[in-house]
Nucleic acid binder design. Structure first.
Length: 344
DNA sequence: CGTCCACGGGAATTGATGGACT
DNA sequence: AGTCCATCAATTCCCGTGGACG
């Protein structure tokens, strides 16, 4: 049944992309000056997860490189590389193909990029709301020819803590909002993936529409669910996905994504997660910290937890936070305490 | 009010790394 | 080879602010 598994990977970049024509046009417009050898306009993309922001950004750069060969570009995920130095390091590697020793000073990196970039270049700053400081945006502005595509969940002010006189010199010409996909668009996306990656007749439209409905506008979840459904059907020796498997597939896909996330947590985040697994109904911050501190043999301070690990768990959609008259309550996401799951 | 909980600015410390100087 | 200094990231420490509540 499965012909090409690559189609279902997270990093698969479809060609062409589905259901985001307007967004694509905005981004390609912003990049258009590069075709004449000029610096592009900066773009800012925002919207919830799983709605194609990263895909559009990457696809727009791909389009550009079809027009203008070898435009240098770099992709930076600011969740992993959120300091000024790391961002510039990534850019130096991606943009000018620099092979660097383990660490280089910030000014050295800037010089390196400047002296190796001749003409326009593009940087994708994914998860840009995770940048520690925004100083790096100023650095990028200082590099002739360089422009960026910023991506974030919410429409944030990237320049909030920059000087006004600096801000006035940096512009974001395009702000593109991504709304949640409709069911029909998700169905269309799934249909393309099925066509490209599965044997003929492996799924029918009803199955795809059903997956789309249960995935609540999140394309990533939907695609994962389809992949899980394929696997489940294959294990039963079937050549097509029966409709009865869909609900379980969607549920398993959620579980699979969650499990994968948990496996990537560090010891502090894991300790927090474990504490919350055991705590029914959630905990207030102070309690949570007290129990974390007991469980971990080298605990970090509450301050650090609050600034780093807790927001991260929240971003991974593992925990949720709720204000309750001056105190915060942390609890696990997607765990239904009201219902005990029977074995098998 | 006083207390509890939580937020967050800002300075300080620690530790790794790498380059310059001797 | 040995010492010293700069840079940077990670983490902690100190402390003032503010809301909710009794």
């Amino acid at each position: 049944m499965l012909r090409d598994g690559e189609v279902f990977r997270d990093d698969h970049l479809p060609d062409p992309i589905v259901g985001r024509n307007r967004h694509m046009n905005e981004v390609t417009d912003a990049l258009a000056p590069i075709e004449d050898g000029f610096r592009a306009e900066n773009v800012f993309l925002f919207g919830p997860s799983g709605v194609g922001k990263t895909t559009v950004a990457k696809a727009a750069v791909r389009e550009l490189r079809r027009e203008v060969l070898e435009v240098p570009y770099a992709y930076v995920n600011c969740w992993q590389d959120h300091t000024r130095n790391r961002v510039l390091d990534q850019i130096a590697r991606g943009l000018v193909g620099a092979t660097l020793p383990r660490s280089s000073s910030t000014s050295r990196l800037i010089d390196l990029i400047k002296s190796n970039l001749h003409g326009p270049g593009v940087v994708i700053l994914d998860e840009a709301d995770q940048l520690r400081g925004t100083e790096v945006l100023y650095d990028l502005h200082e590099i002739r020819g360089l422009s960026w595509i910023g991506i974030a969940n919410r429409e944030i002010d990237l320049f909030a803590d920059l000087d006004d006189r600096i801000t006035s010199r940096i512009s974001v010409a395009y702000r593109v909002r991504f709304d949640t996909y409709g069911e029909d668009t998700i169905t269309e996306i799934l249909s393309r993936r099925a066509r490209d990656g599965l044997g003929p007749g492996a799924v029918n439209d009803d199955v795809l529409a059903r997956i789309a409905r249960l995935s609540e506008g999140d394309a990533r979840q939907a695609i994962t669910a389809l992949r899980v459904a394929v696997r489940m059907a294959s294990q039963e020796g079937l050549a097509a996905i029966p409709e009865r498997l869909v609900e379980d597939a969607v549920r398993n896909a959620e579980q699979e994504v969650r499990q994968k996330t948990i496996s990537k947590l560090n010891t502090h985040q894991r300790a927090l997660h474990e504490v919350l697994v055991e705590a029914e109904g959630g905990l207030i911050q102070k309690e949570l910290y007290a129990r974390y501190e007991e469980r971990h043999d080298d605990p970090v301070t509450l301050r650090y937890l609050r600034e780093n690990h807790l927001p991260k768990l929240e971003h991974y959609n593992l925990i949720e936070v709720e204000w309750d008259r001056g105190t915060k309550r942390y609890s696990l996401v997607g765990v239904d305490h009201s219902e005990s799951t029977p074995e098998l």
